[in-house]
Amino acid sequence: MRITRMVAVAAVAALSLGIAACGGDDGGDSGDTGSGSKSFEAGSTMEKLNKAQKITIGTKFDQPGFGLKGLDGKPAGFDVEIGKLIADELGIADDKITWVETPSAVREEKIEKAEVDLVVATYTINDKRKERIDFAGPYYEAGQNILVKADDTSITGPDSFKAGDKKVCSVQGSTPATNIEKYLANKASQLVVFDVYQKCVDALTNGQVNAVTTDNVILLGFIARNEGKFKLAGENFTKEPYGIGLKKGDNAFRTFVNDTLETLFKDGRWEKAWKDTAGKYVDETPTPPTINRY
């Protein structure tokens, strides 16, 4: 009985894979890119990737708006779009990209071991990380903010947690969780951490916590998806420039990615990517940040 079950599952899966393969027609935006049309300096990473006609990009699979594995099993979001655009500039088509999940804890490691060529994963540029890898970008500047219920006026910013009676939720091992700890009077009775922000929002809805904190763009996504239920409390209180992680010392590649980003900023593809994904729920379009070529 178990065997028939497994066979059945396998059959269904095989069938559905077939269907998915037939239905894949979203290669529209990579139209003008003939793979041979690009040429790069011999021996560079760009040439290697272009020749191999494949690239491995790390992103998050559980970050709505930036990198979230969709119902079709493919990641989608702003980070994913940026990754696709860079691949495009390398002359690599969308379907030749291998997406690898890179949760916060393993990003540096995956880059160091060359398991991924690039990491585009809401990856805040900071000096500690620069010791192990290099950053291109930033391609977006986020800032940490606080999400509260729409009718809540008691929380106006991180300082509201100093009194010790407000509870806040964030994600395990993330920078926002570490940042907010400074403002807490008593960590044990004020802080909750889960593995994804959706769970924090559930806890906020049900009233176990008073606030959720992380980068503003992620919070904006939740505000938009739950019309009228939530709002941001006050201004961003940190700056989180998102960069693209790549192997340390590969300066030619870093320059290439930086140049690519600047091109994307100028020709409107960056803005389109933003509006299609994370910016879908936000009225104003942000101005592109300045590339930091350190």
């Binding site: 699979f61 709505p64 979230l68 594995k69 119902l71 949760p103 994804v196 959706q198 769970k199 559930d202």
Partner: peptide, 22 residues
């Protein structure tokens, strides 16, 4: 360790849906 077994896939589905239904 983010192995995509059924529970983790569920978490992803929940977030990808229009109305999250954990």
């Amino acid at each position: 360790i983010s192995y995509e077994e059924v529970l983790r896939v569920s978490t992803q589905i929940i977030q990808a849906l229009e109305d999250p239904n954990p």
